[in-house]
Design a protein around this nucleic acid. Structure first.
Lengths: 222, 222
DNA sequence: TTTATTTTTAAGTTTATTTTAAGTTATTGA
DNA sequence: TCAATAACTTAAAATAAACTTAAAAATAAA
């Protein structure tokens, strides 16, 4: 799960990021409306935390354009004022929830959790493919009796592969979802993790293996 | 948008279908688990409404097999009991949402709408000609039961041929599309790949073969 | 802080794809 | 009919991509 934070107060942005990380979310931060919008449209995020007061493009404008592009990524708006008019305006424009600064950290996390939960649905807490079960709650992968814990990045990669089993996922996609859009990560980074994951699949004795399509990407096969 | 209803109570199935029709959805109905599963695997549906109590194969089993085949079509499970254990079991197996009978019709439609919304844009992910299917997502070519993986260049060539079946594609065109405009590649390069592809078509047992027009290029014929 | 874990880096190794090339077969037109 | 040309097939060589590791660096936890 990945959250985009659009917030110009650097310290606050980092603080939110830190909180999210502790709750096992990935995140990126954009410091102004323009870059924020650009990131938001990339489709990498499961939720967007959006400040209203922003340089270049204010939060309302950002939200409006995101919706205009047909994206319905959940948006949680942040504002300094507890102005009801602002709130209504934001919700009309397409924000999904609203939080007034200053806020309790638990409150923020709770709201993000609510938004990232699939609309009107109970959260799914495992993903499965063939004989594998990926536990989204405690970051473990199991096959029959055996279970192994996965590191953060191992987990994210496995999740991407297991949400689209048998489909070739481009390395590009994996890098931008796991390391971030503007990351320095190279193919070799992915390769190392794929190697780690394969070792774990072997240990688990699973029938599943991670296949590769040269020049393209990776996929799961039974 | 098309929904598959797997429900043995004929009246209920029809009623759901009727509701869906009013909301501009297309639908098919299967009356037992076995046919339901068969339909589900055809990849035509954007959402599946699945009863648990079913003849031949129960809903849990159907869901499990759908996921095992790597399909992640959203599944909305229906059940008569409001049993929590059932609910958890269903979600673990890969259902995306749950609804207890009897239910409000608005509720059903709202949930189906939620499940079909997050799917995003529909992309064409296969090309077909005669008995061949080229899978653009996992770079494979299949005919009936058999499937072979294609390498990058094999795939690109096959894609060009299959997008213009029966039309003669000049070698020039193939070279510039696959190797690049300013490449050093010779006709012999293409010939080698055509040979590889023919071998694979033979292995697949397809009726299709790659024909040649001397001095011009190649084409597919049934 | 120290310790443990995760992540990155980098080099050497392996492997799949791609190219080359030489021998074979088919097609064309003089 | 038979050169001549074009296309076919194949093995083996070359190349580029992917794999694997160990070790260094960074990060989180104690």
């Amino acid at each position: 799960m990945k959250v985009l934070i659009i917030e110009d107060e650097v310290m606050l942005g980092e603080a939110i990021g830190h909180l999210l990380k502790q709750s096992k979310y990935l995140y990126d931060i954009a410091n102004d409306g323009e870059t924020g919008l650009y990131y938001a449209l990339s489709d990498e995020y499961d939720c967007i935390v959006l400040d209203i007061m922003l340089p270049k493009l204010d939060g309302f404008e950002v939200a409006k354009r995101i919706r205009k592009e047909g994206k319905n990524t959940p948006i949680l708006m942040l504002t300094a004022k507890s102005d009801v008019a602002d709130k209504i305006h934001g919700l009309n424009i397409g924000a999904d929830d609203y939080l007034t600064k200053p806020f309790q950290t638990e409150e923020l996390i709770a709201r993000i959790r609510a938004l990232t939960r699939r609309q009107g649905t109970v959260v799914m807490d495992t993903l499965s493919f063939s004989d594998l079960i990926l536990d989204l709650k405690n970051y473990s992968l199991s096959c029959g009796e055996k279970t192994v814990g996965l590191g953060f990045k191992e987990f994210e990669i496995m999740r991407i592969l297991m949400s689209n089993p048998k489909q070739v996922i481009e390395k590009e996609t994996i890098i931008s979802k796991v390391w971030g859009l503007d990351s320095e990560a190279t193919d070799n980074n992915i390769e190392a993790y794929i190697s780690f994951l394969r070792k774990k699949l072997f240990y688990l004795g699973s029938k599943v293996n991670i296949g590769v399509k040269r020049k393209l990407g990776y996929f799961l096969e039974a």
